[in-house]
């Protein structure tokens, strides 16, 4: 567990960057710091590995004040990923990843062997090992940055806008891999982003900062969407938070109607489209399974040419439909 105990940071010549922050970042969970630019997210993050020291207050990891620890040793035990990856341009990808194990006294050979495995883990083929950072795309560099931070298997990871330098498609992909990796590894992660959607998607706990380095609200993504503490948080999480909060529930309990004759199926029973005229069949626009989110169901109902979302089973066979008014009734009943 990482604890912020009444932490204040005032930069000489600057204003107050972090203002009396007290927080607990649970072990094995991802805590995301989010807020507008300049609200003290990076400063807060960097106080965890002593890249910045607090003006007053304490930061503790598992009850140990970081201020009392050897800087370099502390940092070797904390994975650190920064925006634009911050890779060493003069070292190969493999040697970048091997950096911390070598600092910790592993031989270069051992460290490289382990690094090669890690590359695979973050989704990079072995042929990237011999390349230099300048020969990689932004997304690939970001993966190497994550591999470097993971190399010494630290229990704590700090990530400062790790996914901001890549395009939305690659970001989406990195998000999925991040969630998969974190499910396996269960690190205690502190992540900074200014993107509230990213925070909601990746965070177990989200900390919303406001200007002046004040914490506006701490909670699970569901709590923040359902019950924003004030106008600022409500504004920040966005106007469509109702729709977004549907991401947290699956369609498992959603009632469906039997598949009607208007839904055209192929010989395997998979939906092809809706018959809207004698020889007019329009595509369904997509299907959901009971494991998908209610947000997807709502999306499908809106996109569907007939306002009906189609459910399929594991084999892709149509096994039910939900018209949008049924979905609306379900959501209304759920709220009450």
């Amino acid at each position: 567990m990482i604890t912020f105990d009444d932490v204040v940071k005032v930069y000489p010549g600057g204003g107050t960057a972090v203002d009396h922050v007290s927080l607990e970042l649970p072990t094995g969970k991802t805590t995301v710091f989010v807020g507008p630019s300049g609200c003290g997210k990076t400063t807060s993050l960097r106080m965890i590995n002593r890249m910045i020291s607090p003006t007053s207050g304490r930061v503790l990891i598992d009850g140990q004040d970081v201020a009392g620890q050897d800087e370099a040793l502390l940092r070797r035990g904390i994975g650190y990923v920064i925006q634009h990856a911050g890779l060493f341009p003069h070292r190969t990808v493999l040697d970048n990843v091997a950096t911390v194990p070598v600092l910790l006294g592993k031989t270069r050979r051992e460290a490289r062997a382990a690094a090669l495995e890690l590359l695979e883990r973050v989704g990079l083929a072995p042929e990237f090992a011999k390349r230099y950072p300048a020969q990689l795309s932004g997304g690939q560099q970001q993966r190497v940055g994550v591999a470097r931070a993971l190399a010494a298997d630290p229990p704590v990871m700090l990530m400062d806008e790790p996914f901001s330098a890549v395009d939305p498609v690659v970001r989406e992909q990195l998000h999925r891999e991040f969630l998969r990796l974190q499910q396996d590894l269960g690190k205690t992660i502190a992540m900074v982003t200014h993107d509230i959607d990213e925070a909601i998607k990746l965070g177990d706990v989200v900390v919303i900062f406001r200007q002046g380095g004040v914490v506006a609200q701490v909670g699970t993504p569901q709590e923040l969407l359902a019950d924003p503490a004030d106008e600022f948080v409500a504004e920040f999480v966005g106007r469509d938070r109702g729709l977004r909060s549907l991401s947290f529930d699956t369609a498992a309990e959603l009632p469906v109607l039997p598949v009607p004759a208007e839904l055209v199926l192929d010989e395997a029973g998979r939906p092809v489209g809706w018959r809207t005229g004698a020889d007019d069949v329009r595509p369904t626009g997509g299907t959901f399974t009971s494991a998908d989110t209610l947000r997807l169901v709502a999306d499908l109902a809106i996109l569907s040419p007939v306002g009906i979302a189609v459910r399929v089973d594991g084999d892709g066979k149509a096994d039910g439909i939900t018209p949008h008014h049924d979905l609306a009734d379900y959501l209304a009943a759920r709220r009450g």
Partner: peptide, 27 residues
């Protein structure tokens, strides 16, 4: 030098001498 790289070198736990000889000087 790109100061973000130097910052990363400190961030992964290099001591000042290591930052100089392993990162700053080669770069």
């Amino acid at each position: 030098l790109d100061q973000r790289v130097v910052d990363a070198a400190r961030g992964v736990g290099m001591r000042p001498w290591q930052v100089l000889t392993r990162v700053e000087l080669p770069m």
